[in-house]
């Protein structure tokens, strides 16, 4: 870096124990307009960074850019690519998107200041991956209310109408409760194969683009050695005829973003993190 006015800032992706291979870093594109990905030594750890243009990543400018859907997406994907490149050589502790420092020295300082807790976290995340599981109410149960209405359309009288309405409401409520119970059962079963589990905020119907309400948005931290067991449990639950009220979808393995959190929070992570 030259001069007092900086042209670039140091964007930090993740921390690792082993230095990620230089060719893996060089092969990743990182953020648009930035330099090649680099690994900086930080005490016993390595920090994967990229020089990014200060002009595009300065506070206000970046906030404005992230409000544009396509820039938000490309920034999120670039961040994920950087974290992924850092993960080639073992466990990583990912940083949230847009963790930036004025220069390398500050970035390294921030890591070395927290070296013991980052080391402990790396140990906990080693050989473990995250699995995202969502449970939605089955679409069919949402539609069943309408069928009763059509069947009873021939009947006359206000009293009939009211009793039909209240019966339909009862059915809807009962089905929702049944679906919620099924989602709980799925969560309970999957936790048996995970070292930790956490719940994310349920995604709205607007966000998922489906009409079926989301009942569970969970993440599980699974030991590599138990991955096959976890996958089998998931397949079993998905095929289980006892849970016709719900649909299960899963994705993984994820870098354990949801479990990269300070020790004091980690111990409580088997509980619901966020309603």
């Amino acid at each position: 870096m030259s001069g007092t006015r900086r042209d670039t800032v140091t964007y930090a992706f993740a921390v690792t124990r082993a230095c990620p291979p230089a060719d893996a870093l060089a092969a990743e594109a990182g953020h648009d307009g930035g330099g090649p990905l680099r690994a900086l030594p930080a005490g016993r750890l390595w920090l994967v960074v990229q020089d990014v243009p200060a002009q595009a990543f300065g506070g206000d400018r970046l906030t404005a850019r992230l409000n544009s859907p396509d820039e938000l997406e490309s920034c999120a994907r670039a961040h994920h690519r950087g974290v992924e490149a850092a993960a080639r050589q073992g466990a990583v502790v990912p940083f949230p998107m847009a963790t930036m420092y004025l220069d390398d020295r500050n970035a390294v300082q921030a890591v070395t200041d927290r070296e013991p807790s980052l080391c402990a976290l790396l140990d906990r995340l080693r050989d473990r991956t995250e699995w995202a599981v969502k449970v939605h109410a089955a679409e069919a149960s949402a539609a069943s209310g309408g069928a009763g209405d059509a069947a009873g359309a021939g009947a006359t009288g206000g009293r009939d109408y009211l009793s039909r309405v209240s019966a339909r409401r009862r059915t809807v409520r009962e089905e929702h409760e049944k679906a919620l119970a099924a989602a709980q059962a799925v969560d309970h079963e999957l936790r048996r194969y995970a070292v930790a589990a956490t719940r994310h905020r349920r995604q709205s119907e607007q966000l998922t683009g489906t009409r079926a309400p989301q009942l569970l948005n969970a993440a599980y931290l699974v030991e590599d050695g138990r991955r096959a067991d976890f996958a089998r449990a998931l397949a079993r639950l998905a095929a289980d005829r006892r849970h016709p009220a719900v649909e299960i979808s899963a994705s993984g393995p994820w870098i354990p973003y949801s479990f990269a959190r300070p020790e004091r929070e980690w111990h409580g992570s088997c509980q619901e993190a966020r309603a």
Partner: peptide, 17 residues
């Protein structure tokens, strides 16, 4: 949900809103 909200937070020099 993951890259914006999760990951270990170590204070950066540049704050974004």
């Amino acid at each position: 949900e993951r890259v914006l909200d999760k990951g270990i937070v170590i204070a950066g020099d540049i704050k974004i809103d």
